[in-house]
Design a protein around this nucleic acid. Structure first.
Lengths: 146, 146
DNA sequence: GGGTAATAGTTGATTTTGTAACTAACAAGC
DNA sequence: GCTTGTTAGTTACAAAATCAACTATTACCC
């Protein structure tokens, strides 16, 4: 298994980003899965509603770049568990407004606290300046600014 | 959809890392998928063998943190397409040594060139120093150093 | 050496995702 | 107002990921 070719996979950004993303999501994933039986899309939808209040499925999908079928299923699951309510828009009856129930709010607040402390723990690997630069670079790679 | 809560999802590292990873893998994924019909695990296995030469499934799994069932199926697909050969270790007949065929080598060299230019394009978002720092930080988050 | 545990890798059942086709509602042009 | 095209969201089916159980082989150890 000695080196045979000098391409460095460990520095290839798509690979490296995936490894870092996977590793750094693991412990958080464990929590929303164990504590609420949620999937990745579920907590993302929950957080969007917790942060921005009432939104439609479409708005969440655009903001988080999640496909509409994934959103549809996450909304279904969250609705089944009484974490959100769906109310049709009366002026455009195709879309519906999603809003957290008190139970949804509680789950959101709980997970938000976990997320905050978890994020700090990750950021503690770096100086404050480095962490800020890292976030900036990631936002740029994610196409979230420019 | 006005702000209701000041938690910033766009700065939450697990989310941000995932968005960046997904976005920055898209175009590369398109290429190995369209050109060779490969899945994510397939090109990873291919690259490991291209870079390090002969390896066992277990070694690849450890190095890339991929579950053995995923590796097993990727090896099966690559073997079906005659991109690699499998030879049993005669001193420990449980494991087998994987090695690229000439066709596998050719695919690897082709994709490696794509990967290199693709990586440069991504890194061009930053100064040389920033890019080096980014890779270092990602390796640290991925648990690939310390 | 015989029994028990560990290891490399595979297979099968279940869950989740991805893709395309669908329904229902609205919009635009004429 | 009727046809054609869009849009929001759902559903059906195929592809892929996950998890547990399995086979075959080697290691341990009494």
């Amino acid at each position: 298994m000695s080196e045979k070719d000098d391409f460095d996979l460990r520095n290839f950004l798509p690979f490296l980003l995936n490894q870092a993303a996977e590793e750094s999501s693991l412990a958080f994933q464990q929590i929303y899965k164990d504590r609420y039986g949620m999937l990745r899309t579920d907590w993302r939808v929950l957080f969007h509603l917790g942060i921005y209040g009432q939104m439609t499925a479409k708005e969440i999908g655009e903001r988080a770049r999640i496909h509409k079928t994934k959103i549809s299923r996450a909304v279904q699951r969250l609705s089944d568990r009484r974490f959100l309510t769906r109310t049709r828009d009366e002026t455009d009856r195709r879309s519906e407004h999603l809003m957290l129930t008190p139970a949804g709010e509680a789950a959101y607040r709980d997970l938000r606290a976990v997320a905050e402390s978890y994020d700090s723990r990750l950021a503690a690997h770096f100086t404050t300046g480095e962490a800020a630069l890292l976030r900036m670079m990631l936002r740029r790679l994610a196409g979230m600014e420019r």
